[in-house]
């Protein structure tokens, strides 16, 4: 059974008014337990609305979201429980920090879940460890942290709910390359240890290429592609048609193949490209 399945999922803004706008159109998708999914699509493609329907922040106007095979809106009063199972980190999450200390802020979610104090304490410390916030930082005011630390504290606030599915909407937006690298590897680490499902929305093709197993591409409210990362990035032309790019390295290797070389399709990282070129040079004896 898929952990998340959507059936003809649609959302229309301002239904029955002259301002009617279809944001998500009949999306059918199955996400398996433990997968790392990258979600791409330009602004206004419907990806934000889509992910907010997965944890019941937006109620679909038609269609269903199944979590472990059960419709999340079966009992609307229980929708808060769904939000604990499907954790959502919004863009610029540091702007939602509000408590006196980082510790208290991270415990906001677990507290809302009604956990015991000792369980809350354990979860806060676990979550803080994942994002590398050390002991003394936990008792500072969140507003005294640096930009990157604030971001990590806010993400810990969602991790502390220990969700089965974690959705991150552009978690690295606005960070510098170092901050971006650190955060991405922390997310990967978390995914590896917890073996839970992660959905990462990002505009950075390089980031998505690095971490995801599968990619879902949204275009004009529709699900355009949903396939293994390699297969999606092999479709260079198709992606460019809908205004998306592929990582620079993928593009370079694809244009070499167009000129008659036979490298693998959908090369995603510099390491991969380097290895293939080196093998080829060695085989042909061009590398002394």
């Amino acid at each position: 059974m898929s952990i998340i399945e959507t059936r003809d999922l649609s959302f229309v803004y301002g239904i029955d008014t002259p301002f009617e706008k279809r944001a998500v159109n009949n999306v059918n998708i199955k996400i398996e337990q433990g997968e790392f999914i990258g979600i791409m699509g330009h602004t206004g493609s419907g990806k934000s609305t889509f992910v907010q329907m997965l944890n019941g922040l937006i109620k679909p106007t038609s269609g269903q979201v199944l979590l472990n095979g059960k419709d999340i809106w079966e009992n609307p009063k229980e929708i808060r429980k769904v939000r604990f199972q499907v954790g959502m980190v919004f863009q610029y999450p540091e702007y939602q920090l509000f408590e006196e200390t980082v510790y208290k802020d991270i415990s906001f979610g677990p507290k809302n879940m009604g956990l015991t104090d000792s369980e809350i304490d354990k979860r806060v410390r676990d979550a803080a460890r994942f994002v590398d916030l050390s002991g003394e930082l936990l008792f500072k005011s969140p507003f005294d942290l640096s930009g990157g630390e604030k971001r990590r504290a806010a993400i810990a606030g969602v991790l502390a709910m220990d969700p089965d599915v974690l959705i991150l909407d552009e978690p690295t937006a606005g960070l510098d390359p170092m901050g971006r690298d650190i955060l991405l590897s922390q997310i990967c680490q978390y995914h590896k240890q917890r073996k839970n499902t992660v959905l990462l929305v990002s505009h950075s093709m390089e980031d998505i290429a690095r971490v995801s197993d599968k990619i879902m591409v949204m275009n004009k409210s529709n699900l355009e592609m949903f396939d293994k990362t390699k297969n999606v990035f092999s479709q260079n032309k198709h992606l460019e048609e809908i205004g998306l790019r592929v990582p620079q390295i993928t593009k370079i290797m694809a244009s070499l193949n167009e000129k008659g070389y036979d490298f693998s399709e959908g090369i995603l990282t510099v390491e991969q490209a380097f290895a293939e070129i080196l093998t080829k040079l060695n085989k042909e004896g061009k590398l002394w």
Partner: peptide, 16 residues
Amino acid sequence: EETDKIMQAQKARGAD
């Protein structure tokens, strides 16, 4: 708009 966003974010953390 910002109020809307923050409300959604806190709801996602189980705020009632």
